Simulated scan of single mutants.
Amino acid sequence: MAQSSGPENTTQFKARSVPKSVYSGAKLPEVEAKPITIPETPQFASKNRADSRPAYVEEEVAPFKARPVPKEVYLGSLMAVVEPKPITVPETPKCFAGGLERTIYEPEPEPEYKFKARDMPREIYEHPGKHGVPTIPRKDATIPMTPNFPTEARRLAWEQKKAEQERKEQEEAARRAEEEALKAVAEKEELSKLRETLVHKARPVPKFYHRE
Rank of each mutant, 00 (worst) to 15 (best):
S21F: 06
A50P: 01
M120L: 15
S21D: 04
E106H: 05
V69S: 01
F96P: 08
I143P: 10
I87S: 05
A26G: 01
I104W: 06
H127T: 13
E164M: 04
G6P: 02
F13V: 07
R102L: 14
E169L: 10
L156S: 07
A117V: 06
P54R: 14
R154G: 03
G132T: 03
V69A: 02
M120T: 13
E112G: 09
C95H: 09
K14A: 10
P19H: 06
V82W: 06
R154P: 00
I136Q: 00
A153L: 11
L78M: 07
K139P: 05
R102C: 09
T37H: 08
I104Y: 07
V82R: 09
F115V: 15
R167I: 01
R118T: 03
A45I: 09
Y74D: 07
A184V: 09
L198N: 10
I87L: 07
P109I: 08
F149D: 06
P206A: 13
E112T: 15
A153K: 14
G132W: 00
P35I: 00
V81T: 15
E112F: 09
P29F: 09
L75H: 07
A157K: 09
P204E: 10
A153G: 10
S21W: 05
V199R: 15
K168W: 11
P68C: 01
C95P: 04
V199T: 11
E30Q: 12
Q165D: 13
H127W: 14
Y105I: 06
F115D: 14
E159L: 05
R122Y: 08
E8G: 06
P109C: 04
L28K: 03
Y113H: 12
T103Y: 08
K116F: 06
E187K: 11
T135L: 14
E83W: 11
E91K: 14
K14D: 02
L191P: 00
L198Y: 07
P206N: 06
R67Y: 08
K94C: 05
K71P: 09
